[in-house]
Design a protein around this nucleic acid. Sequence first.
DNA 1: TCTTGACCCTATAGTCACTACAGACTGTAG
DNA 2: CTACAGTCTGTAGTGACTATAGGGTCAAGA
Lengths: 137, 137
Amino acid sequence: MNSRALTIGHLARETGTKVETIRFYEKSGLLPAPARTEGNYRSYDRAHLNRLSFVRRARDLGFSLDQVRALLALSDDRDQSCAAVDAIAKEHRSEVERKIADLQSLKKELDRMIDHCGCGVVADCRIIESLSPDGRT
Amino acid sequence: MNSRALTIGHLARETGTKVETIRFYEKSGLLPAPARTEGNYRSYDRAHLNRLSFVRRARDLGFSLDQVRALLALSDDRDQSCAAVDAIAKEHRSEVERKIADLQSLKKELDRMIDHCGCGVVADCRIIESLSPDGRT
DNA sequence: TCTTGACCCTATAGTCACTACAGACTGTAG
DNA sequence: CTACAGTCTGTAGTGACTATAGGGTCAAGA
């Protein structure tokens, strides 16, 4: 194996990804299948490393694998307008905003439930009560 | 089937749950297996309806099925201290708080990416750039 | 009585994004 | 030569459902 070739383990350490996940990305078409050594080990280069870093960064930002696939396809087509990229990012941002709003109203309900808990017996528990069909607040 | 007995379809409509989900809850031990009619249809009563409503409400509040199982067990034991219930709710609340914080910092990054997008060509796209390994901002 | 159509049954597989095995092979250091 | 770390393929498991296939049941209308 030449000096610039990377094993799957190297790639994993460099990118903070599990080995299984890299193989999973390959099977899912996010990473191209690399060359193999004589012993049938995967042999990666810098381009693979860059591509995997891109995938990981996008995943960290919460893009779905489908969105990552789309972003990769777009990033490969350097002359295309970047409006499509912008659209994916904005769609994702509004999903995130919606989730934040949902979780905030959820938290308010949990706060209310917990504040009312006198911590006596379950029979008088306001948390259980507010979960039950006839005690909605 | 007597007048107070409910089919799975009734239960589904009353609680806004899909029929398949009710069967799934039964298989998962969240709902007791109901009596069957001669034709092998599930036959539910008010107690089932209440229990399913409890489950749905707890799920709406984001409790996991495991947490719901625990809450159900506790709610059945009316004489026990409600401290355990309080603990589950509080644990869940801190999970929710953590998720909100995570999503908020995520949103900030997305905002920054999107704000910088000049919407020209992909080659100059700041979104793609900030996803790529050597353009981390 | 027959038929239509809504409803129900079980069992199985698919979703998402991995993660965890089992069982075998390869490569390297002592 | 032997240990042991690393890699290979393939399969199954996670959570919380959802969807489908291939059947059976029930009530109403012709």
